[in-house]
Amino acid sequence: MYTLEVKNLTKTFGKLVAVDNASFEVPEGSVFGLIGRNGAGKTTTIRMMMNIYLPDSGEVILRGAKVGQDFKNQVGYLPEERGLYKKMRVLDILNYFAELKGKSGRASHKKADEYLKRFDLYDRRLSKIEDLSKGNQQKVQFIATILHDPEFIILDEPFSGLDPINTNLLKEIILEMKEKGKIIIFSTHLMDFAEKMCDHIVMIDHGKVILKGALNEIKSKYAQKNVSLTYDGDISFLQGNPIIEKIADYGNTTGIRLKESSQTQQLLKMLIDRNVTVKKFDANDISLQEIFIELAGHEDGSNGSANGGKEVRNA
């Protein structure tokens, strides 16, 4: 059962095609990751899902109906670049954001107090935003995102610019929301975060969907052909070998993609026969990062591939 269906979304800005015929589905009760490098079209997709942008073509369907104000009222949205009114007091701004979502009155105010207490901000509730530290401003933003008890939580690059404490706090919030059965959609270029938190993903590159589905299915599908290898010795003989499709050197480890999934044993035998010291041979593990580089990297040719891979790894 899909809660949210994105159908053939396209958005252009002048000559730039930001999102190109993207389709994917968000299942009920999932933590959903929108993955891609910077500028891939993640934010534009999210903005179209939020009805902030109208798509050039395509539509976003929420449980059978086109998204509109109804959806907006059920969403808690934390954009990548987060801002608050600097001159407003913490409590005022929380109540204002809740009011915009149609939640006002005592129940909402009480909830704001609860969250402020939980996040150690209760004694600052009458302070102006500009007097708060950056970390505390981020906390206020988290509260504003979830205060109206949204059914959907959409987070755009949620971990960018967060300190380690707030990163953990946000993870906690996401998991808590997941337990409550909320649907969490977040975009990120950090593959390891996505890998740890998502159960469904869609991968976007140059505005196009290049991969989508349940994370565990994706991983097992790609893992069969992939071997992650740590070794001592010379493996240059593998270049051009008929069973090898591709070799990628990631520094400490080498990723080897085979032509057939049944050839892993053959590869191991070859390595041992050639006196290569195998320290780690993992035929079942593939990271999202490797999948991403494999799928997105080759588009730009070898040079682009190196850059793409590097970008992801550094992040």
């Binding site: 902030i52 907006k72 934390l78 801002g83 608050l84």
Partner: peptide
């Protein structure tokens, strides 16, 4: 300009048009 440059506007647009 404040709303635009502080990027408050995107949060607000997630609630209002």
């Amino acid at each position: 300009i404040e709303e635009k440059s502080n990027r408050i506007v995107e949060v607000i647009l997630s609630s209002v048009s």
